[in-house]
Structure formats: C-alpha cells, structure tokens
Amino acid sequence: MVHTVEEYAALLHCPRIQVDKVYSRATNVLTFTKKLTKITGMSEQWVTAQIKQKGENKCIPWKSLQDQILAHPDTKKKVDVFALSIYGLVIFPKALGHIDEAVTDLFDQLDRRVTPVPVILAETFRSLSTCRRTGEGRFIGCAQLLLAWFHSHFWKVDKVSYRVFFENYSSLKELAATPRRDDITEERWMAILQNLQDEDVEWKAPWMMLDEILYRCEDFDWVTLLGIWGPVRYTPLLVLRQYRSRQFIPTAQGLAQCEFSYKGNNYRRKIREMSNTWKQIHRMKRFTVGAMTTPEYYEWWSKRTNDNIPKPNHENS
C-alpha cells in the first residue's frame, strides 16, 4: 500500500490546478535572491541580507518572512509570502525553521496552474525510502498529509459521509474534525502495524470517488514523479487494491534507476526527458472484481521482487 496521485489530489482538493501540468525543475532558473525578490516584493539588498546557508542549501529564515507577513503594505504579497512559508515549513520542511531555496522554484510555477501533487508525492517517497534504507532519519515531507492518508486507510469507518458527492467537499476538513485516539504509545503502534492483516486495512479510502487511474507515461510501465530535490518512479499498478480493483503482478524492472539528486552535469538532460513523458499520459478505468488479488501476486510480494517482468501464462492462453 502506498500513497497515490489520485488520493493526494483528492486530499488537497485544488480545483484551480491542471492535474496533468506537472512541475519540472527549471534548467535556467533565476537566482535565489531574484526569486525571493519577485515573491516578496522586497529589495535585493534586503533579500541578500536574509539568506542563510544550511549545509549544502541556501535558505531564508521563517522569522524574516514572518515580519513581512505582518508589516508588508501589499496584501497580495502578504498572501504570497504566507503561502511560501507554508510550503517551506509544512510541506517541504528540510531545514527546520527555514524555507529552502528549492521550494521557491516550485512556488514560482504555481501561478501557471502547475499541480503540486506529484512533487509532494515524490519527496514523500524519497524521504520514506531514505529512512527505511538507513534505519533512521527525519521525515522530510508533509507529515500532516501523510497522517491524513494513514488515518483513511487504517481506521475503519462505519459509514461514508454523503458530503463526498458535493463539489466543495474537503476530505482534509472532515478528517481534521474527526476525533482520534492519542493515548496509543509508540511501542503499541509498532506492534499494531507489524501484525496487520488484510482485513484490518481500508484498502480504498472512503472519500475516493474517481473511476480513472493514471498508470503510465509514454510507453513506460510507471510514472516519473519530479520532486524539488530529485525524481522517483512510481508504479500505480502496484496498488490496484486501493482502487478496489484486482491486484496482479506489475512490471517493476528499472524502477530504482530513476532516483538521483539534482546535481552534476547530466541531470538537466534527464529532467527534460522525464518531463516530456508527461506529454503522453495514460489512464484506465477502474474495474471491480470478486477476488482482490491473483494467486501469483502473494508469492511475488513475499519475495519483494523489484526487477520483475511477468512471464505469460501459456496454460490459459
């Protein structure tokens, strides 16, 4: 089970965005100073004085932006600075208390109705993979969205609100208003999650109403998600059960070869190639069947086979 583009799009509920217009890291970007000057409306001298170095990245402290939100004479600029702060502190919190330079590159493209969903998913996957691989680390992603997704799949619901059919329905608002237990210890959570059974999981989030699934770009058997710090490949066919469709063995060969950071000499060419795949996206209709998985799927899953090409079943052909 993983987070999907459709689930995060439903959670964020951004009607103004174009769902297929994705972020791509600009190859000829403005300097951090010029981007902040454009967003905040402040002078380059002021912006230059606020920029700090955190490790390998440049950032601006939240305190500097907070002062502008309170004192800026331009209301639109106040809103822009506040929105930028949310993106940097809540959605992409890399340097605590600071807004990372990479966030401004995405923020600068939002006016063109670029969807932030694949970017958020990419950094969620990248951070969770790093934590799992190293066995430690801090999650650098939107913990609030992750928690909302978690509650939607691991808390059984008796009934679905009729409001999901309303155009202005917000699943996040409803989830925020739903009381949750906060007396479960970390050890208890670990025990619960380690012993989960299929019947304990709400495979399809109760607020998911879409009938179409994005499942590939161009002729690839996956979708490339471009984050603000690097890309990942994502295979929706791995999680058909989350759409109440039958789960079969997907093609997973080459998935890990996509992950890299935006550094070095060749990453710009790779970005262009990956961005171009979104010009040919493919969706399929969700279909419902009796059995949720094929018999072969459980065997494949138990082996955690990543580089996999399913062989045709000649007995049934």
Results as ranks from 00 to 15, higher is better:
residue 61 P to T: 02
residue 67 D to Q: 11
residue 67 D to W: 05
residue 68 Q to M: 08
residue 71 A to L: 12
residue 72 H to W: 09
residue 73 P to D: 12
residue 75 T to G: 02
residue 79 V to Q: 12
residue 80 D to K: 12
residue 86 I to Q: 08
residue 86 I to V: 10
residue 86 I to Y: 07
residue 86 I to G: 00
residue 88 G to H: 01
residue 91 I to Q: 06
residue 93 P to A: 07
residue 96 L to R: 13
residue 97 G to N: 06
residue 99 I to L: 10
residue 100 D to L: 02
residue 101 E to R: 09
residue 102 A to S: 15
residue 103 V to D: 05
residue 105 D to K: 08
residue 107 F to Q: 09
residue 107 F to G: 10
residue 107 F to S: 11
residue 109 Q to P: 00
residue 110 L to E: 07
residue 113 R to D: 14
residue 119 V to I: 06
residue 120 I to F: 03
residue 124 T to Y: 01
residue 125 F to G: 00
residue 126 R to H: 09
residue 126 R to G: 01
residue 128 L to Y: 06
residue 131 C to V: 13
residue 134 T to Y: 06
residue 136 E to A: 15
residue 137 G to T: 08
residue 138 R to M: 12
residue 142 C to S: 07
residue 144 Q to Y: 13
residue 145 L to F: 11
residue 146 L to I: 00
residue 153 H to V: 03
residue 153 H to T: 00
residue 153 H to A: 01
residue 155 W to K: 10
residue 158 D to M: 10
residue 159 K to R: 14
residue 161 S to D: 12
residue 164 V to Q: 02
residue 165 F to I: 10
residue 167 E to G: 00
residue 169 Y to D: 05
residue 170 S to F: 03
residue 170 S to L: 05
residue 173 K to C: 08
residue 174 E to M: 07
residue 178 T to Q: 11
residue 179 P to T: 10
residue 180 R to T: 12
residue 183 D to W: 05
residue 183 D to H: 10
residue 184 I to D: 04
residue 185 T to F: 01
residue 185 T to W: 00
residue 185 T to A: 08
residue 186 E to D: 12
residue 187 E to G: 14
residue 187 E to V: 12
residue 188 R to T: 15
residue 189 W to Q: 04
residue 191 A to N: 15
residue 192 I to L: 15
residue 192 I to Q: 10
residue 195 N to E: 10
residue 197 Q to D: 14
residue 197 Q to T: 15
residue 199 E to A: 13
